[in-house]
Design a protein around this nucleic acid. Structure first.
Length: 466
RNA sequence: GUGACUAUGGUGAAGUGGUUAUCACAGCGGGUUGUGGUCCCGUUAUCACCGGUUCGAAUCCGGUUAGUCACCCCA
């Protein structure tokens, strides 16, 4: 927790000091870094679900997997995400290597994917190229609810296609994913237009808020300078009032962006995806053009409903600005940490008051052994079961039969096999039915066969309790 | 980067100046060297760290670190 700063003294002096009178103080345990966390076994089934659904949707929508490195040259993010964005300005994990390269842990997945698209000449593949990724991202941010310095995203990118149907289909894909994980979500959408129309709008907006400067808070004044579009979703009540009179982005969209946006909406209506038009939705990364969207969980809890589960949009200029040929593209990513925490809440709600407990992987057969001879035979028997594809458990390191039976029970074994000295000499094993508590003697050579037979019987006549 | 609150075994809690620091759950070991889900017993904490006040600190004060929440921003 508090990593003891080494005192200013040189370690050399420690050698001169009197021999330490044994180690009285236990060494301080080392803790995870701030904002980092362990994904523990108890939550892994939830994470597994997200991995599985990510992959199956990728297959269904013809996305190919790509894994880019977790570290890239820093300039990739400066050029890709935007120099003046917070993500780059204050949240980038960057350092200089011994070789003098400036490198950064990736704060998001799109820029690296675009880099790979350009670097590997994917423009020569049939367009559009659809790529998906799943992995950790890093942002040096102050940790908070649903926010970590290492967090996981799954993302889908479509490169080389300008059609609005791509935008709509990406939204369906994300919606299906959230739905598949049991989360009710709506998508909020907006259009930022072309870079030119966006710039014009920005100027108009700045002019408007300048005229009202007296009413702005310090925070808002800062935003006015840095990211005026953000002013629109400020929580400041003064802004809420001013917003009504403020210029609207739709009025500034160029014709092409406007018709693109209308087409996207048409497609969404056709697909029945629940969406909300949000004229104030802006995204924090500079590369977005035209369509932008964010997912929010439908929730009675307003606070939680505020947190985006994911977002994305069209970035028609990014490939070019990273040195590729002009290539339209769109994509989105979902924040798995937030999604998993929602899934967990739901799981907890179902469990009621009872704490969620970790259940070890269940096993069909458990082999318990006694004595050295028994243990050796059990070792071989375990392999037989494993090769036969039967889930089998053991606790070979325990000599105590009782402890082993406890383990068999905990692992939910239907049968326990006991093999001790007597059985080894007779060439048999004890086969215990854990539910019935009855036990029979079986030829050791037929043990696997016997279990298979009983298994088949069980399937034919499932026990009433099941 | 700013602010508020918090910090007791693996987990959840009790303890507000003097206790061998309490309880539940989990873990481990037993209950006469061969059998589970019940029961019984034992065992598991220098009270986050450093310093101060005091005869005496888990308890009061300061600092540090971390956690939580909010802002900024975002997933």
């Amino acid at each position: 927790m508090s990593p003891k700063k080494a005192p200013a003294k040189k370690p050399v002096q420690a050698a001169d000091a009197a021999p330490a009178p044994v180690n009285k103080k236990a060494p301080q345990p080392i803790q995870v870094l701030r904002g980092m966390r362990d994904l523990l076994p108890i939550d892994q089934s939830l994470w597994d679900e997200t991995r599985k659904i990510s992959e199956s949707l990728a297959k269904a929508y013809s996305f190919d997997r790509i894994d880019t490195p977790m570290v890239e040259e820093t300039s990739l993010f400066i050029r890709g995400v935007g120099r003046s964005t917070d993500v780059v300005e204050k949240e980038l994990y960057s350092w200089e290597t011994q070789g003098g390269e400036n490198i950064s842990l990736r704060p998001e997945g799109t820029a690296p994917v675009v880099r790979a698209y350009i670097q590997h000449g994917m423009l020569n593949m049939p367009q559009p190229v659809r790529l998906w990724y799943y992995g950790p991202m890093f942002r040096y941010d102050r940790p908070q609810s649903g926010r970590f310095r290492q967090f996981y995203q799954v993302g889908y990118e479509v490169l080389g296609d300008a059609d609005p149907i791509i935008d709509a289909q990406l939204m369906v894909l994300g919606w299906n994913m959230l739905k598949g994980l049991g989360i009710d979500a709506t998508v909020r959408i907006n259009s930022l237009g072309s870079p030119e129309s966006r710039a014009n709008y920005k100027n108009a907006l700045v002019a408007y808020f300048r005229s009202k400067k007296a009413k702005l808070s310090d925070d808002d004044k800062k935003r006015l300078l840095k990211n005026p579009l953000r002013l629109l979703d400020s929580k400041d009540p003064a802004i809420q009032e001013l917003k009504a009179e403020a210029p609207q982005i739709v009025d500034w969209l160029d014709e092409e962006s406007k018709s693109h946006f209308f087409r996207v909406i048409e497609f969404l209506d056709e697909l029945g995806v629940p969406y909300q038009l949000d004229p104030y939705l802006v995204r924090g990364l500079d590369y977005y053009t035209k369509t932008v969207f964010e997912w929010y969980a439908a929730s009675d809890d307003m606070e939680l409903a505020q947190t985006a589960l994911g977002g994305g949009g069209r970035y028609d200029g990014l490939v070019e600005s990273l040195g590729g040929r002009p290539t339209p593209a769109a994509g989105f990513s979902l924040g798995l940490d937030r999604i998993v925490s929602r899934m967990k809440e739901k799981q907890q709600k179902q469990a009621g008051e009872a704490p969620l407990e970790y259940k070890p992987e269940p096993v069909l057969v458990f082999i318990a052994q006694l004595g050295d001879m028994g243990r050796k035979k059990a070792l071989a028997l375990f392999e037989e079961f494993r090769e036969a594809g039967i889930a089998v458990g053991e606790a070979f390191s325990k000599a105590n039969i009782k402890a082993q039976m406890e383990m068999a029970n905990r692992r939910g074994a239907k049968w326990a096999i006991v093999i001790g000295q007597k059985e080894v000499l007779d060439g048999t094993v004890q086969l215990r039915d854990m539910d019935a508590g009855s036990q029979e003697i079986v030829d050791v050579k037929k043990a696997v066969h016997e279990i298979k037979k009983k298994l088949a019987q069980r399937l034919d006549n499932p026990p009433a309790s099941a």
